[in-house]
Structures are given as structure tokens and as C-alpha cells.
Nucleic acid binder design. Sequence first.
RNA 1: GCUCCGGUGGUGUAGUCCGGUCAAGCAUGUCGGCCUUUCGAGCCGUAGAUCCCGGGUUCAAAUCCCGGCCGGAGCACCA
Length: 519
Amino acid sequence: MNLDDQKNLLSKYSFEEKQAQSKREEKILPPLPDIEKYGKVVTRFAPNPDCVLHLGSARAIILSHDYARMYSGKFILRFEDTDPRLKKASLPFYDSIKEDLKWLKCEWDEEYIQSDRLPIYYEYAKKLIEVEGAYVCTCKSEVFKRLLMEKSPCPCRSLSIKENLERFDMMLDGTFSEGQAVLRIKTDLNHPNPAVRDWPALRIVDTRKHPHPRVGSKYRVWPLYNFSAGLDDHLMGVTHIIRGKEHFTNMVRQKYMYSYLGWDYPTAIHYGRLKIEGGVLSKSKIMQGIAKGLYSGFDDPRLATFKALRKRGILPETIRQIIYEVNIKPVDATISWSTLYSLNKKILDPLAPRYFVVFNPIILAIKGFDTERQIVLRKHPNIESMGYRRFRLVPENGILKVYISRNDLELIRKFDVFRLMGLVNLTEFDLKFSYAEAKVHSFDIETAKKLNAPLIHWVPVMECIKVQMVTSDGCLIEGFGELGLADEPVDSIVQLEREGFARIDSKQDNIVKLYFSTK
RNA sequence: GCUCCGGUGGUGUAGUCCGGUCAAGCAUGUCGGCCUUUCGAGCCGUAGAUCCCGGGUUCAAAUCCCGGCCGGAGCACCA
């Protein structure tokens, strides 16, 4: 082996070694605790259908679903629509939540709607009264609150089982009206956290005034979160609850109920909030903003809803990677758009065909373009099988007209020669009042390279299509794109050369509408 | 105020349970270079962290203990 051979071998070896090292490690979920305790893992996602889903729910959804799949378990979707008054559900959201889950590739195995289950909750309410774990309290809430802070019981707490049962029936039959009675779960009145002391389980809602979107005014006694969710988690066999840390004390409260019923509390995992720089992630801000006309809709690009992310060409795989990366820590995480985009681009780049689109267009008249030319460009620089883009360029009286972007004017003026990508090298650039002129210098790329000419994208005036694009701040910009763009199906993501990635949102009236994704 | 939970480069995260191999890894972002008929992708390199602070235990602490500071969550007849 001579020296050259050795060098070769060495460089080859170290190259491969480096490649192997730099290969991105596929993030995997850490093991779920307590799996040995349960025969089969059961998780659930339990949204209130009072708004569309946003990035803040992504942790709960993806972790719950993926852990269920990882352990060949079961993933349940449960709609928690038990507040007909303040956080009232609305019919369209049941469907939109399901759409978002499907888009995220989180198919559920079972589906429940709590507003269908009121009789079950009533049954357990009675059971809890019978084991003296619950009582019907008719105290004014200020009075009760004061007693609570003093760690002293309210008069209703010592009522007999029989009296409580009667009172509960009076809640159900309408003798008590809204605000007059509430079923409470007995806890330790000395519990250091006043928030857990004798928490309310069921209350009365005047559903003639506040009809429920699904069951109207059929029921007047409605469960509160801890009661219905707590019961359902056991009843549905949930083994692992994955939810936000705001629910931490809810677990403490629910455990009292579980002990009366002789149940074991599932393994609960609490994660912190997931935010994104500048992204609007509050249900009330989303709802109010749309009502006020501040946002164009649930898919407004400034919102961090799944609908908006999807519209911008963010892939569900990207969101999943982010979730895997931030994991299940109880700390809040603010992820940056650049991280999101970078992950997205890595997935997108080998998939997205390339096209020319010129925004802020100006006509460029090319002089000295004497003969008709056909040019063929690849849709993807490295993936030939993706196909080709063909242009037929027919000059008129030795002049060819193309659109270029005003944004490139400054760049062009810095050089004597510039090149229209794939087409021609130009010189003697001259900006007239409403158009620009330039003269053919040469055609081959080698000359352009030699002269260090900047590369400009372009669109032929004779063969082009109108393009509108919604930018990330919600503005609409217009321009012209090459004809082939119109052949790409709606929803596909393309790369506009030198501009960035964009998703085709619609095609109508000879206009292609795009949503900008990422540079 | 009370009750919990946390604090690792700009951001996110690994390591913390079972102290040494961590003068701290990875990703993203920054800056520079290479490559490329894209300002994309890829490749190479660079800079950036007294591991919140103080004390203690120890031969040895990002890791254990105590105190402090800062941040978050909860304290609804909401979910």
C-alpha cells in the first residue's frame, strides 16, 4: 500500500465515521412509570370542546397516544363537556378536535362524551353519599368559604345519609335551583391546602337559560371536573393520566373520592406548559380575537392552533418531534419558531418540488434574445425522479419579457452581469419608469460562475399564473409563478426558489393561493 | 398570603435517582468556510454555560444536605 492509498483509505474511513456520528439520533420516549402494575396501558385525551385545539394540547395528545401505542395499549378520546354555562361546548368543536387528532396521526380506540353519562355520575353521587363520603351543602358560598378557611365544618356536613339522599333528589327534581345546593366530597378539613378541602362535585345549572349544545335542558345537575373526570378515569380503566401541571392539586382532591370507592388512583404525570415565541395560545384570546375580527379565523397564521400550523405547512411529524424533544418535564417550555422550522424543513426538503414565483414583480425586457428556446429544469435538484419543469421562451422582435422581483434590483445593480437561473446571463441592466431592460451577455452557466454573477429567479410573462401568498404575519402579497405550479395539488408543499417553502392552499380563477411556511 | 413544583449556553434538551469517565453532550440559532444553476438542503469549522446564589458533607458535587433568590402551577358551584 503506497502513501496515496493510505490517504484515500484514511479519508474514506474518517468520512464514514463522521457521517455515522452526525446522524441524528431518533428521539424516543422514556419508559412510562408503573407499567408493571397494569396489565395493559390505557391513556386518554380529555378536551373540553369549547374551542379548537392548539399547540398547548400537543403534549397531552401525542404523549398519551404514543405511549398507548408503544405499550400496545388503548387510547381514549373523552369529551369533557360538562359546563353548559361558563365554558360551554359548541358542536363544531367536537368534529374539529377529531380532525386535528387525525391530522396529528393520533387515532383513538374509544370515544366517550361526558354529557351522555350524567346518569352514571348521579349513581356514583348516591353511592358516595351512602358511604358518607359526600354531602349536599346548601350554605351560601361566602359562608362556606369562610368556614373552610377556618378549617371548620359547615352545618350540612353532619347531615344523615337519609337527609343527604333526600337533598340530592331535591337537586335533581328542581326543588333547589341554581346556586342553592351543591354536592361536596368530604376531605380532610385540616389539609394544609385550603383548595382541596371539601371540594364540590356536582352543581345545579339552569339549562333552560343555558341549554347544553348536545342534550339541551334534559339535565339540571351537572358534575364538576374532579368528579366526572375522576370517576371516568377509573371507570374507563385509565392507567396513566398525562396532563398539565395545573391539574396537580386535582389529583390530591380526587384521591379522597377514590378512597371512599375503594379504588386505586391511576399513575398521573404532569407536564408544564408548552408555548411558542409570540404564538397566541390562549383559548379566550383566540375566541375573543376572532369575534372582534382581529384574526381571520381559527387558522389565522398568527395563532398557534393546529389548523393554523397545518395551513402554514407545518407537518404533524415536526410537532411530534418537538414533543419528544421537550419530553414530560413539569417545567414550562417556550420553543422557538426557528427550531420548529428547522425540523420541518429537514422533513420537507426532500419532498418539496421547486418552483419560481416572483413577488413584487417588474417586467424585464431582454434584448438580443433572437431565437426561441426551450429549457428544462429539475423539480428537485437532487431527486431527478420528481420530474421536470419546462419553459418555452418565444421572443418577439428579439425581445423576451420576463418578470423579476423588485426585491432583487439592488443585488443586480451591484454586478455588471447577472444570471436568470437556468436561462441566460444578462448585462447592461437599465431601470426605466415602469419596466427594466437588459441585454443578453451569454447563456452558459460557466460564464456566470466565472464572472461571479448573482442568480435571479424569474417567470416568463407569456406563460405564468397569478399567485397570492399569505405571509406569517397575516399579510397578503401578490406575484407571478411559473405555470407548472398550478399542476401541483392543493395542500402540497413546494419550495419557491430563493423565497422559501409554502403550502398550496387553493387554486381558483387562475390564481394559486399560497400560505408561506418557512424561509 | 397559603400549598405544590422547578431552575444546565439565546432557545430546547442530555446528565441529577445510584457523586468521579462532565472544566458539561446533542439540536436549533450566531458567525466563518466548502459545496450547490436557490439566499434551501448538505458538509466542515467557530463563538457562546462561573450547571441560579451562598454555605456544608466529601479525596471528589451540575449531581447529596441546609439556607436564600428567582420562576411556574394551584387556591371557582371552570376544565
